[in-house]
Design a binder for these strands. Structure first.
Lengths: 214, 214, 214, 214
DNA sequence: ACATACGGGACAGCCCGTTACT
DNA sequence: AGTAACGGGCTGTCCCGTATGT
């Protein structure tokens, strides 16, 4: 995953100082949280000096927001948005996304949690700027799922509107990730994936059989 | 000669002092997070001195763990475990719990998030002791729901086992709370509540006609 | 070593709380120094509570002075004063004292230093009360040696007066102990002992043939 | 023309700042001891800010070790090593060194003790790093004297080897300084100086008589 | 652009002592 | 006599940000 030939769509100038800082910061923020990460930790992890760090990010908050916008958002895109767009159905897209995440958790051996979640829980209430940045990520996330759901044939009932279902999907995933973090296991993630998939297959939008949830 | 009445009188009240500290800490940890809360904030909020605080909680971590065990666990019990036990069905229990939480959010006007979630996301990965304490809360939570589900007649398929459903419920709630925190609104909570309830009503375990949710 | 039948010569009331505290404090002060020893360390080492400690010694300084008077002075007496008094000559007395101290250092495997020295160096300059207490110990020490020297016949030259020689002996021992502490070895102590002994044997005050050192 | 014009101007002077800190720390450590000196005292005495102090010395221990290496060692050099090297004989070198030290004590009116001694007694046992640093100072000290003794003609017996004599000299001085500190007087120092000098004059290196110590 | 020096403020933990209580 | 609660204050360290220097 490090220096792979295949470039991301957005050119992040991975060789640059800024990129190294963002990588290090994204990693530390996800692992230890924003407040428990000192700028000096970022500095050390990125292998740059305070001056260089200061040059690119005038404050810790600026760095945090940049991480949200330039790293977390991208991570979400590649882990969720793209798989769902390219999948034949929402159910399969979710299955793939969550499956791969769970698999990577298992291979890693530990669960650091979802970066969107982590930062949202830690900062959304206290800081308006972070809230806005994270909220727009959540919105984009739900909208991507809802759009795909809408594209899947049959009209849905009010209670099971695509928007509502999308919210449930994101919520269930987020919460499952929290639980996975608390128990350092992919168990909750796998269970949630299975239930979510079967729920979506038999949701009102599917035609094959009379509606039977799960 | 004047000695100013007996204003000097100090009254020992260990349980009271301890309780005040825990209350203040639980509040601050939920609102601002663990790392962003200074011991001095706790001290001030509780109206105690450093000495008293030190006496009851020798370290910040000890205070944090005590908050988890003596306050967060209790909050979960009264907000989730008891309503579910006393409700005629899981669906109704969940509906009541989440409904009341959403209602209190609306009346408050802001969303501080679920204390279990908040601490789990911030601390579970980095600190083993917090992880264990929070994990046992998650376990208890799921088990309470699963037990109630098991008591609701019809056997379920493997995928829809009471345990799995319970995990989904907790995950969906947790994630919805995260989203609610990110957007400072009870929207995600309400949507998740509605979907969860309808899902549970029509799940294999339900046999008779749906009952009215709160 | 705990509840042994064989009592020390001086009855220190080993069963009493006060004695336990003094023993623990003397030990800690010698090992870690006065300022690096917390009252709580003393409390823990002595196995008593803060209240009990407070009851016997109203302040840390009071405890320190009590240690000087009730423990350090006694230690000096049994390690130096008595051996010298009972020895046939000063040279032999010194040889015995320093030899035994060096031997106990070797068997212990570490050098904690001389308690008189340690406290004098740490406290004599800053605190008048400690200075006085320690100074009187130094005085007693020198006087005991000088008295014995005076009793050893031949008159001495001015430069080699008994008082001066006694000062040199105490100084050489103290400094050797410092060096022993710095290098954690009895080397300096042994060398100093040997030189001191041969010096005293051939000093103007000695008249007869040298006697065998212990 | 006051320096008021460019009040904002801050001038970087790393060596100067570092030196000021070391000077202040060396002084305080000698006067009040290591543990009784707060970093804030150093900060205030040096007239620097916490940030600057932290930048140059990341911890109190680092500062302490730097003081030993950059100040105490130098002080020893100018007070002992150089006088001895330049003196015609060891005896005279010692006489000069100790005499000047005693004289400065008298003119000061108080005795703060020998910095090597003070730190060795306070820290050598508990801290390995300090022990090593101080031990190497003691070694250098003895070696300088021993080397000069070796250069002084006649071969010596084993017991009165130059190394042994050097150890005695250092020990006697150290201990005398301890006593001087305890009684706040140069008395012990002067006595020790006189005895040491006369001892060395008649030491094996003198040819006139068959070896007879003192 | 990057690197070092510095400013000033906070934070968690500790520590000595006093006071209520048994 | 002995225990536990409590009162304040201090200490070493850290941390974020700015200024200087190259």
């Amino acid at each position: 995953m490090a220096r792979q030939a295949k470039a991301k769509k957005r050119t992040n100038n991975p060789e640059g100082t800024r990129g190294k800082i963002l990588d290090a910061a994204a990693d530390l923020f996800q692992m230890r949280g924003y407040h428990d990460t000192a700028m000096q930790d970022v500095r050390d992890a990125a292998g740059v000096t305070s001056g260089a760090l200061q040059h690119h990010f005038p404050s810790k908050k600026a760095l945090g927001l940049a991480v949200v916008k330039d790293r977390v958002a991208d991570a979400l895109r590649s882990a969720w948005l793209e798989p769902i767009e390219q999948a034949p159905s929402v159910a399969e897209g979710i299955s793939v996304s969550m499956g791969e995440i769970a698999a990577s958790l298992d291979s890693q051996g530990f669960v650091r949690g979802c970066p969107v979640n982590n930062l949202a829980v830690e900062l959304a209430f206290a800081d308006l700027d972070f809230r806005r940045a994270l909220q727009s990520i959540f919105d984009e996330w739900q909208e991507a799922i809802a759009a795909k759901l809408r594209a899947e044939a049959a009209p849905s009932s009010i209670e099971c509107s695509p928007d509502a279902l999308a919210t449930l999907v994101v919520a269930a995933y987020s919460g499952a990730m929290n639980m996975a973090k608390a128990e350092q296991s992919s168990r909750a993630l796998e269970i949630t994936r299975a239930l979510l998939v079967s729920l979506l297959r038999f949701s009102p939008t599917a035609r094959s059989r009379p509606r039977r949830a799960v």
